[in-house]
Deep mutational scan, measured.
Amino acid sequence: EVPFKVVAQFPYKSDYEDDLNFEKDQEIIVTSVEDAEWYFGEYQDSNGDVIEGIFPKSFVAVQG
């Protein structure tokens, strides 16, 4: 069931425009499960802007 919160276990950096880049310990709200390997989610950056994109499930852990 979406949405749910995950926390980055590792930093994720990608050159693909659709990917969500983040640092370790970033909290991310997952709004869609793309497939067995990928989530789609969002978070607010330090400027208060909402950043969204896809990212690999293996880089995050589900909270709770």
Rank of each mutant, 00 (worst) to 15 (best):
P56E: 05
G41H: 02
Q26Y: 03
S46Q: 12
D25G: 15
E34K: 15
I54D: 04
K13N: 10
V33C: 08
F40W: 11
V2H: 05
F22P: 01
D35Y: 08
K13F: 13
Q9E: 06
A8D: 02
Y43A: 02
Q44H: 10
K5D: 01
S46L: 11
D45T: 13
S32N: 11
L20A: 02
S58R: 13
K13P: 01
K57E: 06
Y43P: 00
E34F: 15
Q44E: 13
P3G: 05
P11Q: 09
Y16W: 10
A36P: 11
Q26P: 02
E27H: 07
V62M: 11
G48L: 04
G41Y: 03
V60T: 05
K57W: 06
G64R: 06
I29S: 05
F22Q: 01
N47P: 00
Q9P: 02
V33W: 07
F40T: 05
F59Q: 06
Q63E: 11
E52H: 13
D15R: 11
W38V: 06
F4Q: 02
S46I: 12
Q44K: 12
E1V: 11
D45W: 04
E34H: 15
E37S: 07
D18N: 14
V33M: 08
S46T: 12
Y12S: 00
Q9A: 08
G41F: 05
V60C: 06
F4Y: 03
V7Q: 04
T31G: 02
F4W: 03
E34S: 11
I54W: 15
I51F: 14
V6C: 07
K13H: 15
E52R: 15
S32R: 15
E1D: 11
D45M: 10
E27G: 04
E23N: 09
F10V: 08
I28E: 00
K24A: 09
D49N: 14
D49T: 12
P3S: 04
T31A: 03
P11I: 04
A36R: 09
V30S: 00
Y12D: 02
F22Y: 01
G41A: 02
K24H: 04
F59W: 06
K57Y: 06
F59P: 04
G41Q: 02
V7N: 04
Y39T: 02
F40H: 10
V30M: 02
D18T: 15
G64P: 13
G64W: 09
T31I: 10
P11C: 10
I54G: 11
L20I: 05
E23Q: 07
Q44L: 13
E27K: 04
E1T: 13
K5H: 08
D18E: 13
K57T: 11
S46P: 10
I29C: 14
I51E: 05
A61K: 13
E23P: 07
Y12G: 00
K13V: 11
A36M: 09
N21R: 07
F55A: 00
D35A: 08
P3C: 09
Y39H: 02
V2P: 13
E34C: 15
Y43K: 00
D19Q: 15
V60N: 00
E23I: 06
K24L: 07
G53N: 03
I51T: 06
K24W: 04
G53D: 02
Y16G: 15
V60W: 03
E27I: 15
V62T: 10
D15Q: 12
T31V: 07
Y16M: 12
V6Q: 03
K5S: 08
V6T: 04
E1Q: 12
K5C: 12
S14C: 07
P56Q: 03
V62A: 10
V7P: 02
E1Y: 10
F40Y: 13
E37T: 09
K24P: 03
L20C: 05
Q9L: 15
A61D: 11
W38Q: 05
F59V: 11
Q26V: 05
V6L: 01
I28L: 06
F10S: 08
E34L: 15
A61W: 10
D49Q: 13
A61N: 10
